[in-house]
Nucleic acid binder design. Structure first.
Length: 219
DNA sequence: GTCCAGGGTTCGT
DNA sequence: ACGAACCATGGA
């Protein structure tokens, strides 16, 4: 079994996901911060509320008082922390000249810049890299770790960067053009999340999640 | 009432 | 580099 065969099995079972749901790249970035440890349905409410307040722009978010922003994103949980994180991010974003300026940056610089923002860690930065800036970065999250350690393709003890690197080197062997690479990473991460959700829906609150047995790639 | 979510990020050691 | 502490809503 390989990373690629797991992808093919998931893809066959669930079909294309075309993530990330969001009208604009900026909305995707906001969603990446808001979804930290939070059910996506709660994030959607917060984004709707920002839109309703006509405040889903970097300038508006950066300019409003933190408590006001916190109230708007209340449904996403951790609202005080996330309000501050969102403002940190928007300030940085504006300081760099906004999206069009950031698009000119090379992958490494952009990733580094995102990580320099207080409140943006590995996964949030990589969500933004992949789903807002369409850079070839494989997102590692808790599901990814759990799934692949159950499949015994990784131990689960690896650090974030190590894991990301093994996925990227393994998957880049087979796929050639850069554009395809981004599409593959995009779909793969989405499929992992969908699969985890699917399994957990069948057997709610199963701490083991039965991923190994139910994963179509495990057979 | 309890568990968990597209749990991660920060900060101390 | 690793572990603890922190944050807080809403659906199942």
């Amino acid at each position: 079994m390989t990373f690629l065969s797991v992808y093919r099995a998931l893809s066959k079972q669930y079909g294309p996901q075309h993530w990330w749901p969001g009208d604009t790249p900026f909305e995707v970035m906001v969603g990446a911060v808001l979804t930290q440890n939070t059910a996506w349905s709660n994030v959607e409410k917060a984004i709707t509320s920002l839109k309703q307040a006509k405040s889903l722009t970097a300038k508006k978010i950066a300019a409003m008082p933190a408590p006001t922003l916190a109230e708007l994103i209340r449904s996403a949980g951790y609202f005080n922390v996330k309000a501050k994180r969102l403002q940190n991010f928007c300030n940085w974003f504006l300081q760099q000249g906004g999206e069009s300026a950031l698009r000119q940056w090379d992958d490494a610089s952009l990733r580094h810049g995102l990580l320099s923002v207080n409140g943006v860690g590995h996964e949030t930065a990589d969500d933004m890299m992949l789903y807002a800036f369409e850079r070839p970065v494989f997102v590692i999250d808790a599901y990814t770790r759990r799934l692949f350690s159950r499949l015994e393709l990784v131990t689960g003890e690896e650090g974030y960067e190590v894991l990301r690197h093994s996925f990227e080197t393994e998957l880049s062997k087979k796929i050639i053009p850069g554009d395809e690479q981004v599409t593959l990473y995009n779909e793969y991460h989405a499929l992992i999340v969908i699969h985890a959700k699917d399994v957990c829906r069948k057997k709610p609150r199963c701490s083991e999640c039965c991923l190994r047995r139910q994963c179509p790639a495990a057979e």
